[in-house]
Design a protein around this nucleic acid. Sequence first.
DNA 1: TTTATATTTCGCCGGTTCACGAAATGACCT
DNA 2: AGGTCATTTCGTGAACCGGCGAAATATAAA
Lengths: 116, 116
Amino acid sequence: MYNLVNTFKALSDSNRLRILKVLEPKPLCVCEITDVLQLAPSTVSKHLSILRDAEFIVSDKEGKWVNYRLNRDHTNEYVRHLLPLIRTWIPDDEQIRIDRETARAIDHQTRCHVYE
Amino acid sequence: MYNLVNTFKALSDSNRLRILKVLEPKPLCVCEITDVLQLAPSTVSKHLSILRDAEFIVSDKEGKWVNYRLNRDHTNEYVRHLLPLIRTWIPDDEQIRIDRETARAIDHQTRCHVYE
DNA sequence: TTTATATTTCGCCGGTTCACGAAATGACCT
DNA sequence: AGGTCATTTCGTGAACCGGCGAAATATAAA
C-alpha cells in the first residue's frame, strides 16, 4: 500500500510529468532537462530522484553527466502498467509540446560542453 | 495536464485508496466508511469529495444518508483505465483485508439508525 | 594542481495537505 | 415545532512538499 501511494505521489506533480513526457522520445542528461523545465538544477535533481525511487526512470552515468531514461524494465508492476498509459495521455498538451520542441532544439555538444 | 495531476493526487493518499478498495464489493454510506477508517466524519467527507471531484466515485442521496460507489461510467479516460488497475492491485494488503472485513461486519440497520 | 562544469545534498522558506472539532445544513421521527 | 442523526463546510494547527541557493562531490580539461 505504502509503495502504491508513493508511486502515485511521484506522478502528482506537473514538473515530474513533464520530465516523463520529455524523456519519451530519448534520454536526456540533467542539464538538458534543467534547460527544458527552467528550474534550478537542485530542484530538477530532486524531481529525478523521486521518479527514480518510484522506478519510472533509470540513470546511466557517462563522464560528468548523468543520463536519465524511461524504465523499460518490466519488474515493477505499477510502472509496467502506468508508463504506457501516461504515454498515451496528454500527447497534445501545449506545455508538453513546447518542452519537446525545446529538448529537440538543444545542441547537446554546446550546451553540455562536450570536448571533441 | 492539470487534470491528470489532480487525478494522481486523488490516489496519493492511503486513506483514499482504502476508500476505493472498500467500495469495490459494494456501495457504502459516509457513516459506514467512517467506521471502517476510524477517522472523524469531516475528514472522511473531505476525502470522499476529493475522490468524487476526480470522478473515481459517485454519490447517491438516500434519505439522510449519502451513499458512495465506484464510478462505472466510462466518460473519464483516466478513471476508465485507473480504476480497473487499482482493482487488481494490493488485493491482499493487510489493511485492505481488515477494512473489508470491518465493512462486512457492520450491521447497516443498527449502525445507521434505520427505522423499519 | 587548478579550473570548469555537472550533479547531488542540505537547510530554509512559503504554500499545500491532512487531521480535528465546531458550526451549519438537511432529512426524518415524534 | 423540536429532537436526533448524517453529512458538509469552515477554521486551525502540524506535517509535508516544492522551490531556491550554498556547499559538497565528481569528472575531466588545462
